[in-house]
Design a protein around this nucleic acid. Sequence first.
RNA 1: CGGGGCGUAGCUCAGCUUGGUAGAGCGCUCGGUUUGGGACCGAGAGGUCGCAGGUUCGAAUCCUGUCGCCCCGACCA
Length: 587
Amino acid sequence: MPTRLSNYFLRTLREDPSDAEVTSHRLLVRAGYIRRQAPGVFAWLPIGLRVKAKIEKVVREEMAAAGAHEVHFPALLPREPYEVSGRWAEYGDALFRLQDRKGSDMLLAPTHEEVFTLLVKDLYNSYKDLPLSIYQIQDKYRDEARPRAGLLRGREFTMKDAYSFDYTDAGLDASYEAQRDAYERIFTRLGLEYVIVKADAGAMGGSRSEEFLHPTPVGEDTFVRSAGGYAANVEAFTTLVPEALSWDGLPPAQVFPTPDTPTIQTLVDSANRNQPRPDGRDWTAADTLKNVVLALTGLDGSRELVVVGLPGDRDVDLKRVEVAFAPAEVEAANDEDFAKHPGLVKGYIGPWSADGAVLGETSATGIRYLLDPRVVDGTEWITGANEHGHHVYGLVAGRDFQADGTVEAAEVLAGDPAPDGSGPVELARGMEIGHVFQLGRKYAEALGLKVLDENGKLVTVTMGSYGIGVTRILAIIAELTSDEKGLVWPPAVAPFDVHVIATGRDQVVFDTAESVVAAIEATGREVLYDDRPKVSPGVKFGDAELIGVPQIVIVGRGAADGVVELWDRRTGERTSLPVAEVASRLP
RNA sequence: CGGGGCGUAGCUCAGCUUGGUAGAGCGCUCGGUUUGGGACCGAGAGGUCGCAGGUUCGAAUCCUGUCGCCCCGACCA
């Protein structure tokens, strides 16, 4: 039976909703696919649900092909497993927390590693049961600081999350590859361009991790890639460390007065004016060592200062810093922090002073000092002399100062060398549409998931987790394929295969339309039939364009002569056909 | 959390500066005309003007507070 528009739960809007800015959100609301319920939370109307189901179908088929079995967990879960894994604390404000009537803490799950692990623990205890891959398609909840862009970043979103269980590292690799391959097939079938990039393993622990990013300037992730094939999220980018240099023959460091040079630029100007280089080249920001004071707040609320030293031509990248110091929260040190450390002279901070080391755990201040990996032994720097209005020139790393370690805190710049030697990288933006992740034994260990191996020995299971954002993908497809008239679904995910319009008031129009609909349905296609009486042609055409079913059949003025039109939504091309041929001429 | 904007009919908005008791277009209902690009005529239904205080004879309009939403940034699958 066709879906008849005369009594379908669908209302198109003539005007753009005022609270929708991005294309996908605007069109999905206007065309009657979704409605906003709360910030970042959406209701799915019948036609929207159909598209969602089409995407899920592709995902399910490829999951089955990869040997994964579907399950379904509740979104509402008790606190305990997340307490044991540490994520009750680590997730912070992004976790939706609530209490039941007895006052027990519960949560709306942001992902399900813990409960999948516990289920397997309940049921399995032998290596013979493994490997195992199970997945679900379920709504996830994250209380984003600022939900935006409609479905692209909501607080409730549908995700396919899969989990693999193995008892050997090689097994985990194989399970990981199977999911990774499935993802490639899924995105290819959906026609979504993607880049696979190295990702940060982050607070989840574990080793190998890759993100599938859809390249788009509006993406939230920045990634790098080299011509030689290296690709990584900037958060996971590692600096190619230069060789250490010898400091034999380098002149001793010298302090010069540098009044009014609180910034890198003023310092460089002052250096070129007052202490020109003997080799004739100008000083640049890259010759200076910038020392940035950061405040880390641990999960227990403790506050620690740390100073990061990096070349003056680079800023600290807060995302990379967050990764480097996770799970602590990072912010710039405030006036109060400086007040507690009079040894830090704002604007003139450096590791060295005439009276001894200023930065570092064993120094006068005792503040942890970490260096950008480029600051290798033997490199010379202009940096603060810890005295107002003074800098020290020719300060040599290794000879004149030491640090407590290195940190990947500096921003990545286009042209930086890829760590694998594959050449300079370029920067691009992308939106995460999938993530594959070797969790390793973190969750299994925390939750006690062990099996007996071939030797009768208890071994901890090793796991992987694999996510795809179903609703985000839907929004991206809508965004990519739409035009100024409305949505234009690719056939693989379209809510219907064919949209039949009956226009006119002669009974022959409706009779013809009915037979056309029946003929098309007989070919196995799904039909949306606009049978609304007393609705003018312009309205029906406009709605068809807005709704975006790929093939439209117009039954109208030619009906009396047995002629209808086939209208391709994407190309706009219209072809007149005899009624009898329509079903067979559909692509 | 910082910055900006906005809350008036189902939707998109005007009215607010200069206080006088609620408007338009679209949508919806009824009658009629119309039917290949968002038709027309006539008659209707529909709003505690986000909420709470205050000023005033009188508040959508002025004042104070508060709640909510959107956008940019921070953050984030």
